[in-house]
């Protein structure tokens, strides 16, 4: 187990070094420094995004007790896009709430945690954690949020829309570095805040009845973990945009590779695998395809195929 984690860690360090130093022109110190000043923040953002998306997906799957769901399938990133649009829509792009990236992000996070906690806890309670219902309602919600968002965009002032667009459509080639410190602090704080709940995850996966039997305050723990998932998704979406399939692939690959039920290993392992996938993908997209094929294309194609594989060839998927 630890061996696999160490191998993963070595690989991650390897790709990080490759990403930073290949074609970095060390013979020309000025150029070298300039290139690094561009690459380092991107690298950090990719690591943050990888950590958030993979641990969020993993935790979410364990709460729902199903391996084919991801928070994105339930419309969480659509919700983030909607919340972000709605805030700009209401306060206007000239407001300090929109122009200050950190402030704007804070407002998004607060609104999103309140709405998402409400919507999703209500949904889980109503459906009794029935995966098929959760997925169905989630899919409907995702397009519902999308529709509201596009309606808002249509009635928006075109100039406002232009301003909104720059912060809305983050992707790997247009990452949002402004909220980097804020996100880092948020993730560290979240990890500390949820430390005790994370330790209960192993028991949570046994199901509600077993968890209560073993003395876990199930509803409270799940609510707190769900809040963590929502915030992680918001962070990832804000920084690199929606990466719907990545979480699904990574979480499942981590489970397949590590073959354990212990979540401290799983979370660490999936975070490392997420970093490996994103950074290596970005490296390939940048240096081999010279930006012609964006990394999201790899993720979507790979994710789609893997998703079909999970549905068709692993028993007990649904």
């Amino acid at each position: 187990m630890n061996k696999k984690i160490i191998i993963l860690l070595t690989l991650v360090i390897g790709v990080c070094a490759a990403y930073l130093f290949i074609h970095s022109h060390p013979e020309n110190p000025k150029l070298f420094r300039y290139i690094l000043s561009l690459r380092i923040p991107t690298l950090v953002v990719m690591m943050i995004a990888a950590f958030s998306i993979s641990s969020a997906s993993l935790i979410f799957q364990s709460i729902i007790n199903n391996r084919i769901v991801t928070p994105c399938l339930l419309g969480m990133n659509a919700m983030y896009t909607l919340v972000h649009t709605a805030v700009i829509f209401v306060v206007g792009s000239g407001s300090i709430l929109a122009t200050n990236a950190n402030l704007s992000f804070t407002v998004d996070l607060i609104v999103m945690s309140v709405v998402a906690t409400f919507v999703y806890s209500f949904m889980f309670e109503k459906t009794g954690n029935n995966v098929l219902y959760v997925l169905l309602i989630g899919t409907v919600l995702a397009s519902f949020f999308g529709s509201i968002q596009s309606t808002m965009i249509r009635v928006m002032d075109p100039n406002e829309y232009d301003a909104l667009l720059t912060t809305l459509v983050a992707d790997f080639n247009n990452i949002n570095v402004e909220v980097i410190y804020f996100s880092l602090i948020l993730l560290v704080a979240l990890t500390i805040f949820l430390w005790k709940d994370l330790k209960l995850l192993d028991v949570i996966t046994l199901g509600k009845a077993q968890a209560i039997n073993l003395g876990v305050d199930y509803d409270r723990t799940v609510r707190r973990l769900l809040l963590g998932v929502v915030l992680c998704i918001a962070v990832a979406t804000a920084m690199v945009g929606p990466i719907s399939f990545l979480g699904l692939i990574i979480a499942n690959l981590a489970r397949q590779l590590l073959k354990t039920h212990k979540h401290n290993h799983l979370i660490l392992g999936s975070a490392l695998m997420g970093m490996l996938a994103i950074i290596a993908g970005q490296f390939v997209s940048q240096h081999i395809f010279s930006y012609a094929v964006p990394i999201s294309t790899f993720i979507t194609i790979g994710g789609g195929v893997y998703f079909l594989y999970l549905l068709l060839f692993t028993k007990g998927g649904i």
Binding site: N65, T205, N213, L214, G215, V216, D217, T260, G316
Partner: peptide
């Protein structure tokens, strides 16, 4: 307290579907 009760009272329900790969010992 739920945790104290867990040392006094155990329940086994009919529905136990665990998605995790768990061995008997685990």
């Amino acid at each position: 307290k739920s945790k104290e009760l867990a040392k006094k009272l155990a329940i086994l329900t009919q529905h136990n579907n665990i998605q995790m790969k768990l061995t008997v010992r685990e």
